[in-house]
């Protein structure tokens, strides 16, 4: 059996990649994808820990996170659509009407 620590390290790496993605990428959609990656790293952590502890709570929480993430996608994409319709861009650097 693969030790839990492997999963945790993998999840930490994915989470870090997500953080880097948010900080360096300029496309709103790619930034959002990076956030989703961070959330999935959390899901992996929770599932791995739940298996190690033999408790279901961690796995149940993963379902809640997935549901919330789906709601977030719906709202996030709607907001991006709104921006594209008015400004024709998804680049966050061009959204500079308000001082960033």
């Amino acid at each position: 059996m693969v030790p839990t620590s492997y999963y945790l390290i993998l999840a930490a790496i994915i989470f870090t990649l997500g953080v880097i993605g948010v900080l360096v990428r300029r496309n709103a959609l790619v930034i959002f994808m990076s956030v989703e990656m961070m959330m999935n790293a959390v899901n992996l952590t929770l599932v791995a820990l739940a298996r190690q502890k033999g408790s279901l709570a961690g796995q149940v929480f993963v379902f809640l996170i997935m549901a919330v993430a789906a709601a977030e996608v719906a709202i996030g994409l709607a907001i991006v659509m709104e921006i594209v319709r008015h400004r024709d861009t998804t680049n966050v650097d061009e959204l500079n009407l308000l001082k960033w």
């Binding site: 709103a28 956030v35 961690g58 977030e72 709202i75 996030g76």
Partner: peptide
């Protein structure tokens, strides 16, 4: 709209941090 996008992206980013904290505490 610009404010909404900024709020959304940073809010979701913060939520991910919050969740990772929860997972580690668990």
């Amino acid at each position: 709209g610009e404010a909404a996008l900024k709020y959304f992206l940073l809010g979701a980013f913060a939520s991910a941090f919050f969740l990772y904290g929860v997972a580690l505490l668990y």
